[in-house]
Design a binder for these strands. Structure first.
Length: 425
RNA sequence: GGAGGAGUGGCAGAGUGGUUGAAUGCAUCGGUCUUGAAAACCGACGUAGGCGUAAGUCUACCGGGGGUUCGAAUCCCUCCUCCUCCGCCA
């Protein structure tokens, strides 16, 4: 969420940013500013009345103590009159504050200057293309869902039986491969200085709101009505919320965390070839990296995170490219996002396996995360960043397809010590 | 799930209706002293919002929300969390 103050001070930059996003309602900015003016006006007069009431109350107390009950009772009536006025002012103030909040929460983050123009995924910029050779597939190459079935490592129908579509069941070497990838990703993150976190897999509404899932992505999350809890769509939600309502010391920055969790996404209404096999599922495993850093360093940190993800994909020997998302395709909360896509050779398509973003102060403001600069008493908003490192299901899809030969599937060398086998079957 | 108790500043811990945003101790920061350090002493030390160039000043906040009252950390209602005992249980 943007701050009303920022909008007032940088109105032009905000308007340009929203234009780049193709945000349809630029008029909202001036409506916000008008509401904010109102809010301040109401607060000023409300505070003035409160101050007067406080003064009178003290006088009443003193009068009672010195036995002047009649004078005290006269003042009581004055207070009562002021409270009538106050009630009216406060109603206006509250209503204005609510309206302001409702508008502010609908304004997306302002894109970084490097974000390319564009409306749709086709407009995303290929930031780093794959220039090395693509996998050499056998003539009878199969898509991963057929390979998975042929080798008995993923059972989609069983997932349907037990739960429903989009909940794959991994078994045998398929299950081991999942576990191997998770451990590999976690070890790499730990070696890169990220603290490992095992967070709750359900969050309350406050947490979901803080990272921006509520209210804009409500339909994306599974909701447990009886306990008013949401299944997490990504570890980002619980892990970032560790620092909700926290004031950090500047020297604590950067804070680097990683966490493995299953992720649950409803993906309502999605069917067809895009969702075959592991391409899009309701439950998948992901290792997330989250960083809270000083605003002056956050874009270097973003580069560091890109390097980290590059390293993972290099070690897994998967062909990948990096996209810089255009203004129209970026998520609501992000200021700059890079997507990693791996080549899934048998399907002949790129699959998104990681999204690495800098949210600048958008999340920290929304969740009241601040830091205290060393040379200043006034708290500031740090930048928050996160990225997948990595999302499993599609990595597995690409791995199966790209590494198939006429006899089976070759496991990348880096995973051998985790799987305990080097081939499937 | 049942019964009882409790939630106050970074921590500990006073405070049951009237200069209490909140005593005191610890921690932290600045200073004096010291060759240096420690100790001792002096001082500072919450967050957010409004007004103001600033100094400053006003308002709100003692788990969350609501209420009583001229006035609430203090009384009432409600929710949440923690502790103890019982029940259940990976």
């Amino acid at each position: 969420m943007l701050q009303a103050n920022t909008i007032r001070q940088e109105r032009e930059r905000i308007l340009e940013g929203l234009t780049k996003r193709h945000f349809p309602d630029l008029g909202i900015i001036d409506r916000i500013l008008a509401l904010d003016d109102d809010r301040r006006k109401y607060q000023a007069s409300g505070d003035e009345i409160l101050a007067e009431i406080n003064r009178l109350s003290k006088q009443i107390g003193d009068l009672f103590k010195s036995g002047q009950a009649a004078e005290a009772n006269a003042l009581k009536e004055e207070v009562a009159a002021r409270k009538e006025t106050l009630k009216d002012v406060q109603e206006h103030q509250d209503r204005t504050a609510v309206q302001l909040e409702e508008l502010l929460i609908t304004v997306p983050n302002i894109p970084h200057s490097s974000v390319p123009e564009g409306r749709t995924p086709e407009d995303n910029e290929v930031f780093q293309d794959w220039t090395k050779p693509m996998p050499d597939l056998p003539p009878d190459a199969k898509p991963h869902w057929e390979l998975a079935e042929a080798h008995g490592i993923i059972d989609f129908p069983l997932g349907v039986k037990i739960t429903g579509s989009g909940f794959p069941l991994y078994r045998g070497k398929g299950a081991s491969l999942q576990r191997a990838l998770i451990n590999f990703f976690l070890d790499e993150a730990r070696q890169a200085g990220f603290e490992e976190i095992q967070p709750p897999l359900m969050v309350n509404a406050d947490s979901a709101r803080a990272t921006g899932q509520l209210p804009d992505k409500e339909g994306q999350m599974y909701y447990v009505e009886k306990d008013d809890l949401y299944l997490i769509p990504t570890a980002e939600v619980p892990v970032t919320n560790i620092y909700r309502d926290v004031i950090l010391e500047e020297k604590q920055l950067p804070i680097k965390m990683t966490g493995y969790t299953p992720c649950f996404r409803r993906e309502a209404g999605a069917y067809g070839k895009d969702v075959r096999g592991l391409n899009r599922v309701h439950q998948f495993d992901k290792v997330e990296i989250v960083v809270i850093d000083h605003p002056s360093r956050s874009y270097q940190t973003l580069d560091m995170m890109l390097d980290h993800v590059r390293g993972l994909l290099d070690k897994l020997e998967l062909p990948y490219r990096i996209l810089r998302l255009c203004g129209g395709d970026m998520s609501f909360t992000s200021a700059l996002t890079y997507d990693f896509e791996v080549w899934s050779a048998a399907q002949g398509r790129w699959l998104e396996v990681s999204s690495v973003s800098n949210f600048e102060t958008f999340q920290s403001h929304r969740m009241k995360l601040r830091y205290r600069p060393e040379d200043d008493k006034k708290t500031q908003l740090p930048h928050t960043l996160n990225g997948s490192a990595l999302a499993l299901a599609r990595i597995v899809a690409a791995l199966l397809e790209n590494n198939q030969d006429s006899f089976g599937i070759r496991i990348p060398e880096v995973l051998h010590r985790y799987t305990g086998f080097d081939r499937i079957p």
